[in-house]
Nucleic acid binder design. Structure first.
Length: 431
RNA sequence: GGAGAGGUGGCCGAGUGGUUGAAGGCGCUGCUCUCGAAAAGCAGUAUAUCGGAAACGGUAUCGAGGGUUCGAAUCCCUCCCUCUCCGCCA
């Protein structure tokens, strides 16, 4: 959610920046509603003041019938005005929640994802054989069984088996080791000239189900479209660790000394994938259920951007260490998403499809998310301010497993284990 | 799932209709004292919003929402959460 005062002070800018993201924002209606509310407040407060004054006279005496009548009348006036104001507030709330976060000045303008800028590209090696898609490399029965999963759960579900499962747990342990290591964080900070704490990430297993209020407060991913709702309870299946991590400090005031708070969340993520009929129906690129390792950081405003850069550096470190060809994209205004001020994606090369495909994203929300979550921090001078939030993928599992399968396939249909993971997978050489 | 007890400020805790935004304590901040520290003493210490340059003042908030009342932290209703015992269970 964006600050109403900011909208009032920057009408044109808000209109323009929203347009850059593809949002038509009715700034005039927002301000007019806000004006109406503001104009009604002094009157109702005056009534309430009179009511309070009247009532406070009777600590040691009994009100007369006239005074009782007066009190009743004040109460009625106040309640009429209150319902008017609440009505306007609801309308205003709806309009304001439609306003996206403002993109930072460095974000390239664009009208679709085609305008994302490639800021780095690692070219794939030439193969001397025709690479297969990951679902074609091995028998369905050995690593990926979607046929039986569809019998049990439906389409876009999978039984992952054997070496793929070993691979996933190897990656988890590797990531846990690195991100818990302060020296590792320190090194990345130095390499990237960042001016932030070297505090390691704390691993978290968050709730897998989120209630409606918390879900909406994340300002991310429209719940109805994205997530499964439970039939008998007012709850939603988690669409990613972020949905139960970013809101854990809602309605709290943290201390500046606690920041940054860096979490490494691991969660099974559920997506309805409504509207993606026909896309990626084969393989394990797009499933209703996948596991994800994800970073979530709460920081002060002046370190938010560096935290974002650190997370991108972490993503790149892991992808590089797996020797996966990739490109790093600076997402354009149209593609960063409603709550984002800036965002970067990593697309890893899939030799079977001969394409870079999105495997990672890093999102910087400035105070947009924190404002609707009311997550604040107390500064040294005792003043209170909204935190900045960042989140980013470390690994989205089914997808990174598919990328490894395709990039580590051999001509004779084997899949090798990446060198960096050999110490984590019990000496396995191939899946 | 059954029965019961609760949810008050950063924390503990008092408060069952009337200057209670909330006693007292702890913590924290500042000052006094001290060479310094500790101790002691004094003062301050919630959030949001409106008005104001500020001082300050108004309004709202005692789990959430609604109700009763001239007046609600206190009474009533609904929901959420926590704890205890029983049941079930990884």
């Amino acid at each position: 959610m964006i600050d109403i005062q900011y909208i009032r002070d920057n009408k044109e800018l808000v209109r323009e920046k929203s347009q850059q993201k593809g949002y038509e924002v009715d700034v005039d209606s927002i301000i007019s509603l806000d004006d109406q509310i503001r104009s009604k407040i002094p009157a109702i407060e005056e009534i309430l003041k009179q009511r309070n004054q009247l009532a406070s006279q009777f600590s040691n005496s009994t009100p007369t019938q006239d005074q009782i009548e007066q009190g009743r009348s004040l109460k009625e006036q106040a309640s009429v005005m209150e319902s008017e104001i609440n009505d306007l507030k609801k309308q205003l709330q709806t309009l304001i929640s439609g306003v996206p976060n403002m993109p930072l000045g460095m974000v390239p303008l664009g009208s679709s994802e085609d305008d994302n800028q490639v800021v780095k590209k690692i070219e794939p090696l030439e193969l001397n054989f025709e690479a297969k898609n990951h679902w074609e490399i091995v028998d369905e029965d050995s690593l990926i069984d979607k046929t039986r999963a569809s019998k049990v759960a439906g389409s876009r579900f999978v039984y992952l088996k054997g070496g793929l499962v070993r691979l996933q747990f190897a990656i988890i342990n590797w990531v846990m080791d690195k991100l818990s290591d302060e020296e590792f964080i320190k090194q990345l900070i130095a390499e990237n000239n960042l001016n932030i704490s070297s505090k390691p990430f704390v691993p978290v297993l968050p709730p897998g189900i989120v209630n409606t209020a918390s879900y909406h407060a994340t300002t991310r991913l429209d719940a109805e479209e994205v997530t499964y709702k439970l039939a008998y309870d007012d709850m939603w299946m988690n669409a990613s660790a972020e949905h139960s991590l970013c809101n854990m400090y809602q309605n709290e005031i943290l201390l500046e000394s606690q920041l940054p708070i860096r979490y490494l969340g691991y969660a099974t993520s559920y997506r309805r994938e409504a509207g993606s009929y026909g896309k990626d129906t084969e393989g394990i690129i797009r499933l209703h259920q996948f596991d994800k390792l994800e970073m979530e950081v709460f920081s002060t405003p002046n370190t938010g951007l560096d935290e974002h850069k650190l997370m991108v550096a972490i993503e790149e470190y892991f992808v590089n260490s797996l020797k996966l060809p990739y490109q790093l994209l600076e997402k354009c205004t149209a593609d960063i998403g409603k709550p984002n001020a800036k965002g970067m994606d990593i697309e890893v090369w899939f030799p079977g499809q001969k394409k870079y495909r999105e495997t990672h994203s890093a999102d910087y929300m400035t105070d947009y998310q924190a404002r609707s979550l009311k997550t604040r921090y107390r500064k040294a001078d005792n003043s209170v301010e909204f935190v900045h939030t960042n989140d980013a993928t470390v690994f989205a599992f089914s997808r990174i497993l598919a990328a490894i399968m395709e990039n580590y396939q051999t001509e004779d249909g084997q899949i090798l284990v990446p060198d960096i993971l050999k110490g984590y997978i019990g000496g396995m050489e191939r899946l």
